[in-house]
Simulated scan of single mutants.
Amino acid sequence: MQPFTTQFTLSREYLAECFDQSLPYGKGAQPNYLFPVLLFAAGAGLLLFTGQPKVAGYLLIALAILELLHIRFRRAWWLTRQMWGKGAGAEVQLTIDEEGIQTQNAYAQTALLWSDIERVIETDLGLILVAKSGGRQYLSKSLFTTDLVNEIIAKGNGRA
């Protein structure tokens, strides 16, 4: 594999693409509505069927509403947290070579060796590198040529 180096900015658009493309393949792809429903039911049960002070029931209902808001606005909240981070807006240098994939900016440096990659998931707009440790890293296809994308997929899935 020929060494390849490029730079990109961790902009809001790049991070939004990262979230949108990674979500269907993540652990929380389908929202879990059971938890807020159980919280609401427990809170309503405390309010209706006990003679205890009403604070615990109202608290559980408030937590259920908060959890529903978390589910509804998870993309916006994730993007906001990323934009508040030090790395937001920073230039990232990406290097791909025989060793693996390295990213470096002013605040962080990561290296993902080919031997540490369990598989590569191809999405419409990018690649999700799944490490054996369970971590995931998203890379946009717009950074690469078609040949390099195919080479990364082959090498990451152990076919090269």
Rank of each mutant, 00 (worst) to 15 (best):
A42P: 00
E122H: 03
A62I: 03
M83H: 00
L66T: 15
G45C: 05
A160G: 14
V130L: 09
L48H: 08
F73H: 08
E17P: 01
M1E: 12
W84K: 14
I101Y: 09
R119Q: 10
L34R: 13
S142E: 13
E17R: 03
L129T: 04
V92K: 02
A56E: 05
G85M: 10
F40Y: 04
Q7E: 15
E91G: 04
K86A: 08
G85L: 05
G26W: 05
E99V: 03
E118Q: 14
D116R: 15
Q109K: 15
A76Y: 09
R119Y: 12
Q137G: 07
E91R: 11
T50M: 07
I96T: 06
G126T: 03
F144N: 06
L60P: 03
S142L: 09
G156N: 06
D147S: 13
L60M: 04
T123W: 05
L63Q: 02
A111V: 14
K132T: 05
Q30D: 13
F19M: 05
G100A: 03
A16M: 07
D116T: 13
Q137D: 09
N105R: 06
T145I: 02
W77P: 07
L69T: 01
S142F: 08
T5D: 15
R119H: 11
F8W: 06
G158N: 11
